[in-house]
Amino acid sequence: MSDVLLQSLITGVTIGSAYALVGLGFAIIFNVSDVVNFAQGEFVMVGAMSAVSLLAVGVPFAVALFLALVIAVCIGLILEKFAIEPAKSATVVSTIIITIGASIFLRGLALLIWGKDFHSLPAFSGETPIHIGSATLTPQSMWVMGVTAVLVFLVHQFFNRTITGKALLACSANPIAASLIGIPVKRMMLFAYGLSALLGGAAGLLIAPIAFTSYDAGMMLGLKGFAAAILGGLGNPMGAVAGGVVLGVLESLGAGLISSGYKDAIAFIILLLVLFFKPQGFFGKAGEERV
């Protein structure tokens, strides 16, 4: 049984890292613009699918990964410029619908461009697993966890140490005041979408060698990322990261120890319970409503 436990933990942290990156993207955008971007999962798909296509036409591996990230970021910027910015005064319900629409639209586009097949990316550094007891850890899992840790650290430093990062946080606290003291709020919004898309795209590249990818691979990851962000408390980027890892581990322990058929239900029931009893998530700050 301890093998199952250990293996479930390893798997959970790996998948949870991907959720964490997606959830971090949710949190950053929410922080700056009060919008929950349901198209976040599509960045994951765009990143992975672009890399697959680039590799197929003979682009060297590292260059392909880099270009795929650039493409994901571009999609993020386009999304902000043409779908979010024009609907500036929209309500919560409308922004939810706009971003869900964007997500469906991107999926439709991906279907036309890339077709319906599943694709895989080669693992970054071989597939020889490391054995810990009878549980195993693949090199790709280590890539996923390692790169996630680095990215999360960088984002954390960025928000706390750099002027741009602090400016971003100021936009979220009070956009009018922020613009009055000369922070270019519009540009900050663009920046936030670009950064989120970058994180989403990175998650896609990291996870594709494990889980494959297809035009509709983004939706489920997007939902899980959203759940991660909610679990951690929407306004808190580091909370989203913790939420992602917790969600991944919950799912995988649910599958390993309780019932694999009901594992998603278990994860969502726990999510609902958290929402019911701690409505602002683990680390969220209580919001006030405007009259």
Binding site: V4, A255, G256
Partner: peptide, 13 residues
């Protein structure tokens, strides 16, 4: 599930 990404937990079970 349809979109599951990793089945090692089930398999070690």
């Amino acid at each position: 599930g349809k979109k599951d990404t990793d089945m090692t937990a089930q398999l070690s079970k």
